[in-house]
Amino acid sequence: MSELPVTEAELQAYVDARLPESRTAEIDRYIAGHPEEAGRVAAYRSQSDQLRATFEPVLGEPVPARLVRAARPRHVRIWRVAAAFALVGLGVLAGWQLHGSLAPPEAQQSFAHDAAVAHATYSPEVRHAVEVGADQEAHLVAWLSKRLGAKVRAPNLEAAGYSLMGGRLLPGEDGSAGAAPTAQFMYQCNKGTRVTLYVRTHVQDQHETAFRFARDRSVGVFYWIDRSFGYALSSADISKDELLKVANVAYQQLNP
């Protein structure tokens, strides 16, 4: 049997089963007589199998909404967001409770979604849950009001059993550089359960709205618009009814 020398590149292509059949057969025979090379081929094929097995689960993970948004810039995604989420198998928008027959406009949906993401991001934090603590509440409120360009307040939720922990500044709508930033206030009850109030100013849709409820994976959100302020109260740990009670207290505190 005449054997052409096997190049290293060919051996790699052999590992990947990308050679023409005839050449594959020749290398099969070559490998049979060279245990060292046979060992390499087996090891490399096993690497490929292990790589695929190790990272396969990533394909089944829910796609973070921020990536779906990045794949659909604003000018192409209007009204298509829900379809996009459905496409990638997210249950993100499931659970809308519609008041009346009108679905909330997209801007409000993404507002509630942003609030839920911010809640999920910061509420589990042990040491850095807030940027400025409640011990400096006056400073916190003054700072956030200055940055948001409107007078914001941290409502007192003690009537619902929640104490202010503090707050932080977050990016504005769509993370856009031109938009006013957003404020997040965090509260905790004596059992350690946390709720966050997400506050955005200069909301385009100036109508007042009823409370709307959305569930974004594990986070429940009540949100409403009041005099160009958008508010969203989020929690991952308490029931919808309980969250509604807290939302009512917040609403009353904000409209004394």
Binding site: E56, V63, A71, R72, R77, A84
Partner: peptide, 21 residues
């Protein structure tokens, strides 16, 4: 299918590669 649809469909593949990388 729009470009956006096609790109959204590919996100899981991009995530897998990025995770490994």
């Amino acid at each position: 299918m729009t470009d956006a649809d096609s790109i959204v469909e590919l996100i899981p593949r991009l995530r897998r590669y990025a995770r490994a990388l």
